[in-house]
Design a protein around this nucleic acid. Structure first.
Lengths: 197, 197
DNA sequence: GCAGTGTTTGAATGATCGTTCAAAATGAGT
DNA sequence: ACTCATTTTGAACGATCATTCAAACACTGC
């Protein structure tokens, strides 16, 4: 088949899962070939290098996360309640046996010392996430307050993404979040997440 | 020289710095040989494998961090003020160009999916850190409250260790910490850290 | 000063790494 | 049907990976 290429989106999705789980150095191209079903030549023609494919995976993950957050915040009764929902969802995710934190955070920590060009992208994506939160929060708070809250929120998100690996009881994780993010309407979300648990 | 071995402590220290910066997969044994000055045979006789050496590095780092925290908390006027000092110190560290987060956190994220035996150790060391905070905080708060505060504190520590890579202004990082950890005596430490800045 | 125990040396191992490329296969344009 | 541009194939590349081991060496005890 000449003009009919492989399903690029699917390949990126498969690669994302692999890189997300194993990291850049931990995932070999052999594993990528296996996970995607593609042969070396095809992948290298399409993405140039391992870095190129990783970059595509980062972008895919970032866009998907951003969309998910935006949609949750927009469909929630208030931005604050949406944030509560997202946080509780993150705690729930961390109970999964296959939990593997956040792809962007893992990339940031792994690649920080390597000085490779991927780092800039990662930092940008993480920064964009904070900007999104700050923007949404500024509907409910003055600009400066919203930015401080957004920063505090990001610290908590980063924290959960690490804390989630230690298997602490779910309730104490949520209590810790409530202690740190007192300005969020926890009681509004509490019944919601309890009902389907 | 038969009985006079190399300086084991120094070798572990050098290896720790390398693994801390580059990660387990990112640091090659060749780099270790170069960093420590030892030849393959000596290292493998002493530590058995790359994993063995990494384990020694983790233990070294963990013990050192634990000692540092314990000493800071003991010599501070109060435990709470000691915690403030530690947090501000972490923010300051993150401004360093060679900043590389926390060795235990990086290890946790990198190795989580590998299923190797090092993971248990990492989780234990991180858990011990939280226990230490909880124990100290129970001097000032009832047990349950102390544990919740310790968990919240750990989330903030993890958060900073990631947030520190994005180069945000130092003041806004501290503001975010103050927003999340309202129960800490920030004004007591504020003058101290400002005076020598 | 010799024997023996234990350490250091560094070349060599097989495996696996990321990547390449010539050849085969495919479908569009004529 | 044939041509041609493009994609897929998979064997092969050199580099580097973690690790090994026999030989050289150094110190202790006699």
């Amino acid at each position: 088949m000449a003009r009919a290429q492989f399903d690029r989106e699917q390949v990126i999705q498969d690669s994302t899962r692999l890189f997300w789980q194993q990291g850049f150095n931990g995932a070999s191209m052999q594993q990528v070939f296996k996970a995607t079903g593609l042969k070396p030549g095809s992948l290298y023609l399409a993405f140039g290098s391992k870095e190129g494919l990783y970059e595509a995976a980062l972008e895919h993950y970032s866009r998907q996360s951003r969309d998910m957050v935006r949609q949750t915040l927009e469909s929630a009764p208030t931005v604050s309640e949406g944030i509560c929902q997202l946080l509780i969802q993150m705690v729930d995710e961390s109970e999964d046996a296959e939990y593997c934190s956040c792809f962007l955070i893992k990339s940031q920590l792994e690649l920080a010392a390597s000085g490779c060009s991927l780092l800039t992208k990662v930092s940008t994506y993480l920064g964009a996430m904070e900007d999104l939160y700050a923007e949404c929060l500024s509907q409910e708070y003055p600009r400066e307050q919203a930015e401080t809250y957004a920063a505090s929120l990001m610290i908590h998100v980063y924290g959960i993404r690490v804390y989630g690996y230690l298997d602490r009881p779910r309730e104490s994780m949520i209590q810790a979040l409530q202690a740190g993010l007192t300005w969020l309407p926890w009681q509004a979300c509490d019944s919601a997440h309890r009902s389907h648990a």
